[in-house]
Design a protein around this nucleic acid. Sequence first.
DNA 1: TCGCTAATAAACACGG
DNA 2: GCCGTGTTTATTAGCG
Length: 606
Amino acid sequence: QALQAARQLLLQQPGSGLKSPKSQDKQRPLQVPVSVAMMSPQVITPQQMQQILQQQVLSPQQLQALLQQQQAVMLQQQHLQEFYKKQQEQLHLQLLQQQHPGKQVKEVSKHKETTEPFLLQIQSWAGPQQGLLSLPGPAPGQAALPGQTLQPPAGLSPAELQQLWKDVTGGNGHGMEDNGIKHNSSSTGSGGTGTGGGLDLSTNNSSSTTSSSNIKHSEKKPRSSLHEESGGTHPLYGHGVCKWPGCEKLCEDFGQFLKHLNSEHALDDRSTAQCRVQMQVVQQLEIQLSKERERLQAMMAHLHMRPSEPKSSPKPLNLVSSVTMSKNLPPASPPNLPQTPTTPTAPITPMAAMPQVPSVLGGANVPSMGAMRRRHSDKYSMPLSSEIAPNYEFYKNADVRPPFTYATLIRQAIIDSAEHQLTLNEIYSWFTRTFAYFRRNAATWKNAVRHNLSLHKCFVRVENVKGAVWTVDEVEYQKRRSQKITGSPSLVKNLPSSLGYGTALNASLQAALAETSLPLLGTPGLMNSGSTAHEELNGSLDHLDTNGHGSPGYSPSAHMPVHVKEEPLNMDDDECPMSLVTTANHSPELDDERELEEGNLSEDLE
DNA sequence: TCGCTAATAAACACGG
DNA sequence: GCCGTGTTTATTAGCG
């Protein structure tokens, strides 16, 4: 309305506002708004604004007034959006509680949180049809107006995008289709093509906030899973469904699709508007893609992965603020969307086992501990220390769960200590000190630590002068580990008797050596205490090797703190810690093989 | 589907 | 009674 008032102002004062040098241009001020209005009735895009500026059709005062009015409208729009969002969310939750009692509400609500901002954004892009001021992306060299956020939220999947499109176009779903909810919109399209009213989402929703009775369960139309057969080929036709954004009209065959396409999506205002919105979507996605690609480059550069293009990061990455996606992107893969799944043949980094990497570290969207009950298999993980070491700062600062089991971490904490023994509280401290992730939900993970200490035989409680301390029974630990590695408990069963370090024990200890060697040395943070791990393991090896057998009365408490033999070996390894590059193409099996090979190598060096 | 493993939650005991 | 520690059991989920 404000913009229209401005336009009225211009129309009412054509003479005063004109600085056109030629008299025949006197119609210009009329032409511009009219043309704009033809495109989108209440929109003056920045490009057009610039055009107006260039053509000097308006006086600076008028332009200023116009801009002010636009800003005022923007503020109104923002308020409307906020109001609408709140109302919609409230309504949404209300409906979900009615229809999906229980935790589904939480899940869908979470989904909504991610989609709604973009939904609003899309609505803003599609504003003309909604009577809202549309403010497309700023023209080159023109700053975005305050409050204007044109970036779609990161991490938008194509499915979400499609859903949002449906939201925009008001097609079958009206935004809540995922939840089986459908707004009884004013859409007149019998086939759910969102004719006309498809784009007046905001008005529909705003009205629906006061009349929830207008909402009904949707006869959820089967999606692309049906009609797999497809007659002809057309970018807008697939799986028997019209792929026009927001349409999804079922078409029996290609001919019917063509007929539908020509009838429902002919060249008219609606189609052009939808096309325009789609262009905006594509444009924004391209912008986002380029940003993500740039981010990927920077990440790969930071992580010493081979960048596909030698494009250096504009600035060093601050892990706390910049790490927004998993590192498990194969370096050879083209920089794609960050959600690119890792193929089983390229588990690459231990991050592959990382359950999740919060998109915003330390942000509110970090899933709670309880929500991420993921299996923490070490299978895809490289040796703990060598994983932690290069990422020491990362884990220290980033609220990312380390991809290791509690047992592994506890052991690491203990063998990192000078005495190879820690009190429970010291273990706690190590966790919180080493991993930012363990600086919250203390009760949960501390309970898990205690549980693991009690559960696993490899952890031995030793009464000490100053109380009880926990040590690691390395043999027990490696028994567990070798069980996991070899999958052959029979081998482990023979461990005590095969003290001549037979194959199983050898492999186990080699694996252990691989796990605790190389590691820590690459990182100052872990180097100081971490070298003990290496030494301890070598000590363990020495103990067995030199005697030809493990000590029968093997006592971890007696064994752990002592017998440190300085081993100059592996210094080459130290200089070349296990990098993401070297492990990038490792399959899980190769990882195990690598560990064995490294063990052999170390042994050979001895 | 089944078995294994790990994470998580919780109850309980015990001592300071 | 509270808290930290330690043990144990049950449930759940991921994975092979």
